[in-house]
């Protein structure tokens, strides 16, 4: 009985360990190199053309990565480290512009463009579909098209010639 309970308990412990391991690895398992890289990839290198700090080999970028590492070791959060650089270099240091002021246009423009594109495309699809539907309903025996009229005329003419 006791043996069975111990076995059951050990199964439960193993299950809990396995179940919690992804959460643990997500929160604690990120090594410092990954964290440095993550933060450095959010910051633009001030002396480079369109390169983030994580990718640049410039002296300044190396120094910046060292400062990120040092601040992480001091226990500072990602947000605090980013704020440190923004306080010194301004918003232009950020890889993505913060959603404020004129920057809202940059954030909203893709959504607006997508909406406008969808509306315009829907309109044209609706119109072309309606036109083809109208054309279909127009073609009846009582209401022949111009081509059909031409064709009928030709047949009538040939029949007359045949009769005569």
């Amino acid at each position: 009985m006791i043996k069975r309970t111990v076995t059951k308990l050990s199964y439960i412990v193993i299950y809990i360990v396995f179940a919690l391991s992804p959460i643990a690895s997500h929160t604690l398992g990120k090594d410092i190199d990954t964290q440095v890289r993550e933060i450095a990839s959010l910051l633009m290198c001030p002396v480079c053309q369109g390169q983030v700090v994580a990718e640049s080999n410039s002296e300044l970028a190396k120094n910046m990565r060292a400062i990120i590492r040092k601040q992480l070791e001091e226990g500072k959060s990602k947000e605090e480290i980013i704020a440190y650089f923004v306080e010194r270099y301004g918003d232009s240091i950020l890889g993505a512009p913060p959603p404020k002021g004129i920057n809202w246009v940059l954030w909203l423009f893709p959504a607006l463009a997508l909406t406008a594109g969808t509306v315009i495309a829907s309109f044209f699809l609706y119109r072309s579909r309606k036109e083809s539907k109208d054309a279909e309903t127009d073609i009846t025996e009582d209401n022949p098209t111009a081509v059909e009229i031409e064709y009928i005329k030709k047949i009538e003419k040939e029949l007359k010639e045949f009769d005569s």
Binding site: P46, V47, E59, L60, K62, N63, M64, A66, I67, F85, R88, Y89, G90
Partner: peptide, 13 residues
């Protein structure tokens, strides 16, 4: 040598 003062001042060149 570590560029710490420079970065603290926002030096970019």
């Amino acid at each position: 040598p570590k560029g710490e003062i420079a970065i603290n001042y926002g030096v970019a060149g």
